[in-house]
Amino acid sequence: MGASGLGGGGKKSVNVDLNLVPFIDLLSTLICFLLITAVWQQINVLTTDSASTTASESATPPDPNRIDLSLSLMMDHVLAAEGEKNTRINHLQGEPDYNSLMRLLNDWKTRHPDRKDVTLNTDSQAPYKQLIRLMDTLITADFEDVGVNTN
């Protein structure tokens, strides 16, 4: 009867106005905090670790039958070396031919399924983005232990 608040006559109405001021305060504070701490550009990392190579070399002598896998990034081509066998992959429109490189890396993976390590040599004048893209391609091809030659 009195709960409806309609036609209650002398009874006090139960409909009350909700106080929205603290609610708006809370929302405003939350929005300010979230806007300040918002991540507009997600940054990730690619890692190269020289410690593991050094540690393994000091622990065990190098295997004489081990085939070295390496990529050399030059200004106009990429030289892929599987032991003594070299494969030259020319750049396409100034950028390395990542599709051909990916096919080659898949071949390497078929022949050396347990290998994860590849050494990456680079020309000093090559742009940084090509090094990152090559590292990304190697990780995609399941060669996760990429060592960058700094000489």
Binding site: Q41, Q42, I43, N44, V45, L46, T47, T48, D49, S50, A51, T54, I132, M135, D136
Partner: peptide, 12 residues
Amino acid sequence: NSIHFAVREPGS
């Protein structure tokens, strides 16, 4: 020895 290169996700 552990060097991380900062990169962004494609399209970000």
